[in-house]
Design a protein around this nucleic acid. Structure first.
Length: 490
DNA sequence: TTTTGAGTTGTTCGA
DNA sequence: GTCGAACAACTCAAA
């Protein structure tokens, strides 16, 4: 009887536990585990620098869990799979689904081709609690607003985690594979050094971080999650993005969290954040234009400023607004930014500086370890006000008010903007108002050690409101026509 | 088909 | 300092 040889194609599911593709592949006589770096072909979808650092280390960790037999490739996945199937007489190919529009199209073609060759090709859901097509309104069309989506989401039954394979079949290697370092995922400059003290990629560390969140931080999640200095958030986003831990696992573990009202509130709020992640994937699936196109077409006429100098000041954390700068520097140094600060820095870029949300999204995409096409695109559209379910245009964060409210002790600012550390709290959030002698005492000369505010908040806020008001009346027929085209395209 | 209630995370102003 | 209202309609979802 002939041997059955299965490929397990790892993608954004870099884990052994609750991995349905691996579980299925492990049922066969021989297993060829592969990873294909496949984002080279199209520039607009290429992974960002920070993500590549994470991926390198996550692959290293997965490879060691597979006793060093993970086979690496670089290039066109369909070509590589075709050749592998021929070389090894592969009978089964398994993978877990990704939801980037270009991957959906590509994977569909690969599956068709494999099936035509008589090879069993099968994909699974490993990264979402609900498939995007599983939740619809009563009329069958997709939700645009989070809350009704969430209500529907919560009454769905969610699958339990899958078992971990008990035995691994004999593991195959391929002579045409390359080494992990051949993927050239690590940056050539020393930029990523700052990530190491904060992060450890890999399944083992994902579980460890999750455990510590359950034990130490979940009990203050609802209140603490808004305060960047409190570190009450889970910090799981990069682990989740690369599939080192599954949302099914998280949901199951949450069932065993204590039963007080506070426990229930904290749990509910955390599940709500998981649902936001799902909703982002949902929007990306149903609106594949999400990453690049305003979902509200009238925003195509928004007067963005397109000023490289302003953009660079924001990127470098040199805006003169301490909380904004703290956030941007946290991002650059650690590959992460606290959720509330993401909203504040994004609002500042889009509304106060009036820079196109896509330029902000591109910077986050390159700098975030958790850079995720669905979450990044959906969130930027939300902040900019051009998403389906978006913040109202008049909701413009005031970075000083937010700073005083959510970093009252100034710990977060002092950590990432150390040149201001000696200022008392009263002026830490607004150093330009500090008396000269106080500044001198703190060793600060504004414009030299720390920038003057790059823009007037009240003026820029008013200008943003004017701009938003304008696009509502500009060329209404064009906007209406575009909207009509969009509807017919659906 | 029409109607009704509701919409993640805010800010400012004036009493 | 604290509180409620205004911001400005509009679209969505469901009855």
């Amino acid at each position: 009887m002939s041997q059955e040889i299965a490929i397990c194609w790892f993608r954004q599911d870099l884990r052994i536990s609750d991995n349905p593709a691996l579980l299925a592949a492990a049922e066969h006589d021989q297993l060829l585990p592969i990873y294909v770096l496949d984002d080279d072909s199209a520039d607009e979808v290429a992974m960002g620098g920070a993500s590549r650092w994470w991926l390198h280390h996550s692959l290293q960790s997965l490879n060691s869990d597979l006793i060093g037999t993970l086979q690496f490739f670089r290039g066109d996945a369909s070509v590589i799979l075709r050749e592998l199937c021929q070389r090894h007489n592969v009978t089964h190919v398994y993978w877990n689904r990704c939801y980037e529009p270009w991957r959906i199209d590509r994977d569909r073609e690969i599956k068709t081709e494999l099936l035509e060759q008589g090879i069993h090709a099968e994909s699974f859901n490993a990264s979402l609690l609900q498939e995007p097509w599983a939740i619809t309104k009563t009329d069958g069309s997709p939700y645009k607003v989070f809350t009704p989506y969430y209500r529907r989401f919560m009454v769905q039954s969610h699958a339990a985690p899958k078992a971990t394979p008990r035995f691994m079949p004999s593991l195959l290697e391929d002579s045409h594979s390359c080494s992990l370092s051949d993927l050239e995922l690590l940056p050539s400059i020393n930029w990523a050094e700052g990530f190491k003290p904060h992060w450890q990629p890999g399944e083992k560390w994902a579980h460890k971080r999750w455990r510590s969140f359950l034990d130490e931080r979940l009990n203050n999640y609802q209140q603490g999650r808004d305060f960047p200095a409190k570190q009450s958030v889970s910090g799981l986003s990069p682990h989740l993005h690369f599939g080192e831990i599954s949302p099914r696992q998280l949901l199951q573990d949450l069932q065993y969290v204590g039963g007080s009202d506070t426990d229930n509130d904290n749990r509910e709020h955390f599940i709500r954040e998981l649902a936001w992640r799902e909703f982002s994937y949902y929007l990306l699936y149903h609106w594949p234009d999400l990453p690049g196109k305003n979902l509200r077409p009238e925003f195509d006429y928004f007067p963005w400023q397109h000023d490289e100098t302003l953009l660079r000041q924001w990127q470098r954390g040199m805006t003169g607004y301490p909380l904004v700068d703290a956030g941007m520097r946290e991002l650059w140094q650690t590959g992460f930014m606290h959720n509330r600060v993401r909203m504040i820095t994004a609002s500042f870029l889009v509304k106060n500086l009036r820079q196109d949300w896509r330029s902000g999204a591109a910077w986050f995409w390159d700098c975030l370890l958790d850079a995720d096409l669905a979450s990044n695109s959906a969130s930027w559209q939300w902040v900019a006000g051009c998403g389906t379910d978006a913040a109202p245009y008049f909701r413009i964060f005031n970075p000083v008010t937010q700073s005083e409210k959510f970093d009252p002790g100034g710990d977060y600012i002092r950590q990432y903007v150390p040149e201001l550390a000696a200022l008392p709290n009263r002026y830490l959030h607004r150093p330009w108002e500090a008396p000269d002698d106080l500044l001198a005492q703190a060793g600060i000369t504004l414009g030299k050690d720390y920038p003057h505010p790059m823009i007037d908040l009240a003026e820029s806020r008013a200008a943003a409101l004017d701009a938003f008001a304008a696009i509502k009346t500009v060329e209404p027929t064009v906007a209406v026509n575009q909207a009509a085209q969009k509807v017919s395209a659906l």
